[in-house]
């Protein structure tokens, strides 16, 4: 997995609550058997005016000029500013793959849906929960037309504002370590293979019906 240490980047505001993963990456792009190729279809239904399908390249599409992602001043953004319950709905990890491939490595929101939140950490994307008033302030700053550039420092667990002000944030210590070191968490789990085998043997003793021969 791609490591995440610090990132300095422009903020893209998406002022909408309950953004579901169907919006982040619509279903017609889930037919791929690869982990890549989703970035051009991030927020496809909002980003383009025509209906997308996997055979079309972005050049063949009609861009929706009113969608914030297409605004010239947000090009190259790497931090997404979002509203509550971001990433709700389907468990599709393709949503995170699309964000990451587009270049969005940090998502700031007052709250996230559980499965999406967990999927982010598996792909080098850092979701950060901030107080609603701080999120509001950031949206207000962006509404003035001024851009906003932030530095996110995972090791220190702080966000540095242009004013020099810093905001601290919480992150699960295991997930933090995985992100900082770009760890394969399956490898970490398998260091406990002995404990898993031991548990499994006892579990089989207690509940042999769970280990029936299928079919």
């Amino acid at each position: 997995m791609k490591a995440f240490t610090t990132l300095t980047g422009r903020v893209l505001p998406l002022d909408k609550a309950n953004v579901d993963t169907d919006q982040i990456i619509p279903k017609q792009f889930l037919k791929s058997i690869r982990r890549t190729g989703f970035g051009d279809n991030l927020f496809d239904g909002w980003r383009y005016l025509d209906e997308g399908d996997p055979s079309k390249t972005p050049n063949e599409r009609r861009i929706n000029p009113d969608f914030v992602l297409n605004a010239p001043r947000y090009q190259g953004a790497s931090i997404l500013l979002a509203r509550e319950n971001f990433g709700c709905g389907s468990s599709r990890e393709h949503a995170v793959w699309a964000l990451e491939e587009y270049g969005l490595r940090v998502v700031l929101a007052p709250s996230f849906a559980d499965i999406f939140f967990s999927n982010c950490f598996k792909n080098g994307v850092l979701p950060i929960v901030l107080e609603e008033n701080i999120i509001d302030e950031m949206f207000e700053m962006l509404a003035t037309g001024e851009g906003l550039e932030l530095t996110v420092d995972l090791a220190e667990q702080v966000i540095r504002m242009p004013s020099g002000k810093t905001l601290s944030f919480e992150v699960d210590s295991f997930r933090k370590r995985c992100l900082l070191e770009g760890l394969d968490d399956i490898g970490v789990t398998l260091t406990d293979a002995g404990a898993i085998r031991e548990f499994e043997a006892a579990h089989r003793q207690r509940a042999p019906w769970l280990f029936g021969d299928p079919g």
Binding site: S91, E93, V96, K122, T189
Partner: peptide
């Protein structure tokens, strides 16, 4: 019973376990 992402599908295939925090 709960849904998981693809990375966790791989995790379960490889280890029969998931890393979780209790809800």
């Amino acid at each position: 019973a709960h849904g998981i992402g693809t990375s966790e599908v791989e995790h379960v295939l490889a280890s029969q376990c998931l890393i979780q925090r209790k809800a």
